[in-house]
Design a protein around this nucleic acid. Structure first.
Length: 168
DNA sequence: ACTTCGATGTCCT
DNA sequence: GGACATCGAAGTG
């Protein structure tokens, strides 16, 4: 089992383990490629901030589906957010992709993030990352673990260290 | 350098 | 009516 398959298995089993397994993977769309460096796990029922905490809505329904799919939603009326769903069908959980380090396709990212003052700011937040990749609700529900997907994950260099803490 | 604030979808009470 | 998984601009030291 390679690290990508391990990440999907971890996501299916436990969103916290899945979140750690996503770190260091590359997020790929077309020529764009970036290393995931910051994530945040959400689950129900113990986290009231999880969108799924109070049941299914049109927005969050993909979270109740299988693990490894994109959960994309519009937030603050301004930004798109990219999450990876976790846990099996009927048990909602997800990992928010918070930040990544550009690896490839920098020009395309800069074009989509013309307001970024430096390359460091291209993907340094969930809303920025989605903007750079051109991620919108049309990608909601796609399989991020399929090599034929428009937006997908791939194996990256091993991670050296991981910091863990509670959500702010 | 930091603080405040506007933009405003979706869901809640 | 208010909270929220945000960002960037504007104002202040």
């Amino acid at each position: 089992m390679n690290r990508l398959e391990e990440a999907l298995a971890a996501l299916d089993n436990d969103v916290l383990a899945g979140a750690k397994a996503l770190l260091g993977l590359n997020l790929v769309k077309g020529e764009m490629r970036a290393r995931i460096v910051e994530v945040e796990a959400y689950r129900t029922p113990d986290d009231p901030a999880c969108h799924a905490h109070r049941g299914v809505t049109p927005r969050n329904e993909v979270m109740f589906g299988p693990a490894g799919r994109a959960y994309v939603y519009f937030n603050y009326g301004v930004h798109w957010m990219l999450n990876v769903t976790a846990h099996s069908q009927g048990d909602a959980a997800a990992v928010l992709i918070r930040a990544a380090q550009p690896v490839n396709g920098l020009d395309e990212m800069r074009g989509a993030r013309s307001r970024a003052k430096s390359d460091r700011d291209l993907l340094s937040g969930p809303g920025k990352l989605a903007a750079a990749y051109g991620i919108t609700g049309v990608l909601n529900g796609i399989n991020l673990f399929s090599v034929s997907s428009f937006l997908r994950l791939e194996e990256g260099p091993p991670v050296e260290s991981v910091l863990v803490g509670p959500r702010i």
